[in-house]
Design a protein around this nucleic acid. Structure first.
Lengths: 242, 242
DNA sequence: TAGTGGTCTAGACCACTTA
DNA sequence: AAGTGGTCTAGACCACTAC
C-alpha cells in the first residue's frame, strides 16, 4: 500500500500551509525547486499543486509563483453533506429525533430518481434535526435497499448517518443538491413548530456512488431563522463548504 | 490565439455528450483511442478527462472505462455565478429588465459586509431576471465604486454583468453563497408576480477578488416554481493529470 | 533577459477490471 | 491474459511576469 508521490507532495504542502510555515499571502517554492526537493519530475508536482488549487488553498497564474490564499482547506464533501459536521464546525449542538423508519415500496417519482424498480423496496426515514435543542430541519430520506437495510438495526438518534455509512464502507462519491423554497405543509408545521404556509428552505439531494449509481434521495426542509446553507466556490474549483 | 489541445479535446467530448452521441451510461472511448483520434499524447487527453470528471459529466475508475454520468455539466465558476450562463446551459431564454441603478451611500450593514466606509458611495442595481419571458428572479446588487462605476454607462438589459466585468479584467475569484427562504415583500410580490408572503428562495452572495477584497454583495430572490439553484459536489475530485 | 508556469511528447511500469 | 486507467520520468517549447 504505497501512497502516490503527488499525494505525498500535496499533503506535505498542505501541512506547511496549515502550520504557517508558508504564510498566507506568501509565495510557494517554484515548481523547479519542488521537483528538486521531492526528487520528482514536474508531473506529480503539478498534480499536487492542482489539488491545492481546487481546495482553494493557493492561487496564482502564468509567470507568477503560486500564492497561499488561505490556511484552512474547505473540507468539501463530508461537511457539505452532514448536518452533524456542519453543526460541529459552527459551534452548535446537533441533535436528532427519529420520527419513522420504514421498509416500503417507493412512490413512482422517487423510484425513477433512484433508478430502482417500483416493485423493489426501499428504506425511508423521517428525522427531525435540532440545533441547540431547537427544531432546525426536517429530513425525509430514501435509501436503496442494499445501503439502507443496515440502518434498520442502527441507533439513528446517536449521530450522523453519513459517518455510519462511511464506516460500513459505502462508496459515497458525489451529490447533487437542488435548492428552492416551499410553504410548510402540515407535517413540517407541526414538527418544525412554524405556522402552516411559512416559507422553508428546501434542499433536495441525490447522492451517488463513484459509478454514478444512485444511493440516496432526500428532501430536507430548513427553518430559515435557525439554519441556512452556505456554499463557497472558487474560480479554479467548485468546492462547497458548511 | 491558439486554444490548448486539452481544451479542444474537452470541448469536443462535452459536445458529443450533450448531443447524445455518447449516451448517458455509455462508456467513452479509451484513452488510447482518444490519443489516436486527436493525435495527442496521454497528457492532454487525461487533462481533458479530468476536467469533465470535475464537472460531474463522467465517472469511472481504475481499469474501467470512463462512463457518462450526466449530459448537463454541473456548475463551473462562471455558470454558478451567472444567471445568464445557467439559463443557456439548461436551454432557456434569459432576459432582464433593469429597474434601477444608483450611485449612493450604502446602508451600514452593507457597508460592513463590503468593507467600505459608510461615507463612500457604492453602485446599487435592482434588476428583474426572466426565463422564457416569465419573471424568475429579482436581484438587488451592490458593487464597490471602482468596479461598479463603469456599469452606469453599460447596457445592462443586454446580458450578463459577469461577462461584462470579466471583459473589463475584473478579478472575480471566489464567492460565498448563503441560501434561505423568505416571504415575498411588496416589491418582490409586484415584480415577480406572486402574492405577498409567498415563499421565495433567497441567495445572498459575497464575491471577492483573489486577494479576498469584497467586490459585490447581492440579495437574489427566486420564484421557486420557475428557477432553482443546483450545486454538485464530489468526494475525491481526482485532480488534473498530465 | 531570466525566471516561472502552461503545455506537450514519447516513452515506461504498475494495479485493477474483465473475460 | 488482455485491456484499461493511474502514475511517473525526462526532456522540450512557448507565453507571461518581473526586473
Amino acid at each position: 500500500m504505497t501512497i502516490p508521490l503527488h499525494r505525498v507532495i500535496a499533503s506535505e504542502l498542505r501541512q506547511r500551509i496549515r502550520a504557517g510555515a508558508i504564510a498566507v499571502g506568501a509565495a510557494l517554492p517554484s515548481e523547479a525547486r519542488l521537483c528538486e526537493e521531492f526528487s520528482a519530475s514536474r508531473g506529480p508536482v503539478r498534480q499536487a499543486l492542482s489539488a491545492l488549487r481546487e481546495e482553494g488553498l493557493i492561487g496564482g497564474g502564468q509567470g507568477k509563483r503560486a500564492v497561499v490564499l488561505d490556511a484552512v482547506p474547505a473540507q468539501p464533501f463530508e461537511s457539505f453533506l452532514s448536518f452533524t459536521r456542519r453543526a460541529e464546525i459552527t459551534g452548535h449542538e446537533p441533535g436528532q429525533r427519529l420520527q419513522e423508519i420504514a421498509l416500503r415500496r417507493p412512490e413512482p417519482t422517487v423510484a425513477a430518481v433512484l433508478g430502482v424498480d417500483p416493485d423493489d423496496v426501499v428504506v425511508q426515514l423521517v428525522r427531525l434535526r435540532l440545533l441547540d435543542g431547537r427544531p432546525a430541519m426536517l429530513e425525509r430520506m430514501t435509501y436503496v435497499e442494499a445501503v439502507g437495510r443496515p440502518l434498520l438495526d442502527a441507533d439513528l438518534d446517536a449521530g450522523s448517518i453519513y459517518a455510519l455509512l462511511l464506516d460500513r464502507g459505502v462508496d459515497l462519491h458525489s451529490a447533487r443538491h437542488t435548492f428552492d423554497a416551499v410553504a410548510a405543509d402540515a407535517l413540517d408545521a407541526r414538527l418544525l413548530d412554524v405556522p402552516e404556509g411559512a416559507p422553508l428552505l428546501r434542499e433536495r439531494r441525490l447522492t451517488t456512488d463513484s459509478s454514478g449509481t444512485p444511493i440516496e434521495w432526500s428532501d430536507d426542509r430548513y427553518r430559515p431563522d435557525v439554519a441556512t446553507v452556505t456554499v463557497t466556490n472558487t474560480r479554479n474549483s467548485r468546492s462547497a463548504a458548511l
